[in-house]
Design a protein around this nucleic acid. Structure first.
Lengths: 408, 408
DNA sequence: AGCATTAATTTCACTGCTCGAAAAAAGATG
DNA sequence: CATCTTTTTTCGAGCAGTGAAATTAATGCT
C-alpha cells in the first residue's frame, strides 16, 4: 500500500517539484519570478534554489546577454537547468522509420540518428539489439552525455500491457511481446519507458500551443494508423498502466472493413491511409490491408480528391464519417473542449470536415454543450518529439530531483 | 491560480483527511488501527484524534459491548464519527419517483420522504419549490438534525453544465435549465450539489462491494434510460464539472431509432425499456418514445422472452447488441477491469449476454487484454443511495472537517 | 492481594519545512 | 557619493511529523 501520508519530506518534494516545473514551463527565471510563479515565499525559494544549486540540478546563469534592459534596482540573476547533469535518449519508432535523439537535461538536442524501418527490421534484428546498437553508437559519439544518461524513452504504436513495460500488440512488425525494455534497462542500467504515440501527441500539443496547456484536448492522429491521446484540464489521461486509448480500433461498423489489426470495422480500416486507398480503388473491404503506403500515393489521392474526382472524394467522405462517428461516440464518455487532427491525414482535413461535423452533430453532448472546436494541425513529427521530450524531462525532474538526494 | 504549494497546513489537512477517510471506510477504529490504516505514527494519530475530538468531529465510543472479547493488554478505545455534528439531505429524483433522505454524519438514516413524480410535477411546482417544501417538512420533523444540516445533494439524470450547478438537459420533464440548486443553496444557506445518477452508481458499487473498491469499474444502468459511471482504480472519473458520461446517448446506429432525447440511434433507443418494448411490438423505430413504461409491462416482456417468444427475444438481442457495441466502443477509450450491469435491465441480462459478449469480442482491446468481467447486479436503488451518501459524507469530511476549524 | 506481562496511548525531544519581516546586496540615478 | 529601487538572504517563530521512552489499564499467575 502506497502511503499517502504527508510529512515534511513530501512537502519539500512537492515544492521542489513546483520550482522545477515552473522552470520547465517558463524557462530560466529569477528567484522572484519563481516565487510569484509557484506561490511560495521568497524565503522558501531561496532555500530550495540554494539546495538545488548545491546539488547541481540548476545553476545561476551569467547575467550577460539576457534582456535585462535596464531596471532600477538590483538586477535579477536567473537560474536555469544545469544541462550537464543529465541526458535522455528518446526513440521514436514508426512503421517506416526510427529516430533516436539524445537530449540534455536542458532539453537541448545533442545528437540524433535516423534509421529506416521495414517489416523485416525487427525480425532480423531483435528490438533490444536494434535499440542497444544505436544507443551505444550515440553514447560513443557523445561521451559526456553518455555518462549522465538518466532515461531511455521509446515512442511506439500499439497496445501496452498493464505495467507499461511491453507491447502486447503493435502495427510495427515483430515488436510486440519482446521484453526489450527490461533488457535495455539492465544493459544500460537506466529506466526505460514505453509511451504510446497517441498519448505523446496529446502531451506535445499541450506544450506546443500554450492555449492548450490546461485545456481538455483530444488529439487524433490520422495517417498510417489512427490514434488518439487526451488531456483533461492539463492532465494526461491514463497513468502509465491503463493502456487503452485505442481510438483507431474503436468499432465503427459491425463486421465492416478488415483492419490491419485483424478485427473488422475499426475506424482505422476506413480512415487510415490504407483504408482510404482501398476504398478509392474499390478494393474489396475484406482485402488484406497493405502493410505500408508510400507517401506519394496518399498525397496523390488527396490531390485527386481536391480536384473533385468522385472515387477519391467518396473515400475521404467515408474516412471522415468513420472519424466523426468515432469522435461522437468518444464524446459520450469524455468530452474535450478541443479536438486536434494531426498527421498526414490532417492534409485531407478539408475533405473530411463536412462528414466529421455531420457525425458530431448527431451526438447529444454536442447539441447540449455545443460543438467542440475541431482543427487540423499539420506535421505531427514535432508534437511527438516534444511530447516525448517534455514527458521524459518532467519525469527526471519529479522522480530524480524533486526528492532529496539519496532517497529512492 | 490555485496554489499547489505545500505547507504545514496542507500536511495537517491531508493527514486529518486520511484519518477521516479510514473511519469512513472501516467504521470506528482504535487509534492503533488508525495508525496502521493510515500509515501515520502513533504520535501523530494521538495529536490528530485529540484535535478532532476537541472539535467534536469524532468521539470516543463507550467501551461497552464491542467485541473486545478478551485481550491481554490495555483495551483499545474506539473512536468514531460524532453523528450529531452534521447531517445531509439526499434527494434521489427519478422519472417516476422522488425520495428525500435525511442522514446524520455517521451515515445513519434519520428520516425519509417519498413522493411520486409525473411529467407534470415540475411543470406545476417549480423544482426549487418542490425540493424546498420536502426539505422543510423533514427539517420540521427532525429539528436536531435540521440544525446541523451541512449539505444537500441531489441525484439526477441528464447532462450537467460545466460547473455542475444546473441541468442542461434531463429526461425528467421540466427539470433542466432551472437554477434550483442556487435557489436552494441561498434558501437553506447550505451547499447544494447535483450528481449524475450514473456516476453515483459507480460510487455506490465501489462501496457496496469491497472487491471493487479500488478497481476500474464501469457501471451501466439499464432501465428507463441507459447510463454509465466509471471508476478508475478507485477514483471516480470526472471531477464535478466534466459533465459527460452520456453513455446511453452514445450513437449506436447512424440515423437509427428515435431516442427520447430527440437524437437518433442512441444506445438508449434500443436498450432502454421503451426501446425494447418498441422493438418487441414492431412499433416503427421512428415513433415517439413512450414517456414512461410501467414496470409490469417491462417485466412481462422479460417473461415472454424467457419463455422463448421470438419477437421478445429479438428485442432483447437488439438491446444487447446496442449495449455491447457501446461497451466495445467505450473500451477503445477506457478499459475497465469490471463491468457491472445494474437497474431493471439487469433482470434481462441473460437475454442480452450473448449479444453483449459477441460485440465485446469484436473489440481489439478485448482480444489483447482479455474480456472484462461483465456481471449483472439487481436492484440499483441501494447503489444510488449508497453512492450519494458516501460521496456527500466524504465531501463533508474533506471539505468541512479535514481543514482547520475557521479556515475556508 | 500483589506483581509480572501485554498492548494501547501519550509524552518528549528533535528535525525539517514554510512564512513574514527585517536586513543585506547590487546596481541605477542624480 | 548619497539615495532609491528591486532582488535575495537571513532570522526567529510556528507547526507537523517521528521514534523512543514513559504511562496507562487490563489480564494472568502465584
Amino acid at each position: 500500500m502506497a502511503r499517502n501520508v504527508s510529512d515534511s519530506d513530501s512537502v519539500r518534494r512537492q515544492n521542489r517539484g513546483l520550482v522545477l516545473g515552473a522552470l520547465r514551463v517558463q524557462g530560466s527565471l529569477s528567484r522572484t519570478a519563481l516565487a510569484t510563479g509557484t506561490g511560495l515565499s521568497h524565503a522558501s525559494i531561496t532555500a530550495i534554489t540554494h539546495d538545488l544549486i548545491e546539488q547541481q540540478v540548476i545553476a545561476e546563469l551569467e547575467p550577460g546577454e539576457k534582456s535585462d534592459g535596464r531596471g532600477r534596482g538590483r538586477p535579477a540573476t536567473l537560474v536555469g537547468f544545469n544541462r550537464h547533469i543529465g541526458a535522455a535518449a528518446l526513440f521514436e519508432v514508426d512503421v517506416n522509420r526510427s529516430r533516436l535523439s539524445l537530449v540534455d537535461y536542458g532539453g537541448v538536442l545533442v545528437d540524433r540518428i535516423e534509421t529506416p524501418v521495414t517489416p523485416a527490421t525487427f525480425a532480423e534484428t531483435p528490438p533490444a539489439v536494434f535499440f542497444a546498437q544505436r544507443l551505444r553508437q550515440l553514447q560513443a559519439r557523445n561521451p559526456s552525455e553518455a555518462a549522465v544518461l538518466r532515461r531511455v524513452a521509446i515512442s511506439v504504436q500499439g497496445i501496452l500491457d498493464r505495467d507499461g513495460q511491453s507491447l502486447k500488440w503493435s502495427p510495427i512488425a515483430h515488436l510486440a511481446n519482446r521484453p526489450f525494455t527490461t533488457e535495455l534497462a539492465t544493459a544500460f542500467a537506466v529506466p526505460v519507458a514505453l509511451h504510446k504515440r497517441g498519448r505523446l501527441l496529446a502531451e506535445g500539443a499541450r506544450w506546443l500551443d500554450p492555449a492548450l496547456h490546461d485545456a481538455s484536448v483530444a488529439t487524433v492522429f490520422v495517417g498510417s494508423t489512427v490514434a488518439m491521446g487526451m488531456t483533461f484540464r492539463g492532465q494526461i489521461m491514463g497513468r502509465g498502466d491503463e493502456g487503452a486509448t485505442e481510438f483507431g480500433h474503436m468499432n465503427h461498423q459491425p463486421n465492416g472493413a478488415l483492419c490491419r489489426c485483424g478485427m473488422r470495422g475499426c475506424i482505422e480500416a476506413y480512415a487510415s491511409d490504407y483504408g482510404v486507398l482501398r476504398t478509392a480503388y474499390s478494393v474489396p473491404e475484406t482485402a488484406t490491408p497493405a502493410p505500408a503506403v508510400p507517401q506519394h500515393e496518399y498525397d496523390g489521392l488527396i490531390a485527386r480528391a481536391e480536384s473533385g474526382e468522385r472515387t477519391a472524394t467518396h473515400a475521404f467522405n467515408l474516412a471522415g464519417r468513420a472519424v466523426g462517428f468515432g469522435l461522437s461516440r468518444m464524446m459520450a464518455v469524455f468530452d474535450p473542449s478541443h479536438i486536434l487532427i494531426v498527421g498526414p491525414g490532417a492534409r485531407a482535413f478539408a475533405l473530411m470536415q463536412a462528414e466529421i461535423n455531420a457525425a458530431l452533430a448527431s451526438a447529444l453532448v454536442c447539441r447540449i454543450n455545443g460543438m467542440p472546436e475541431v482543427v487540423a494541425h499539420r506535421d505531427e513529427k514535432e508534437p511527438i518529439f516534444k511530447g516525448l521530450l517534455m514527458k521524459t524531462l518532467n519525469e527526471i525532474d519529479q522522480d530524480d530531483f524533486a526528492g532529496l538526494p539519496g532517497a529512492r
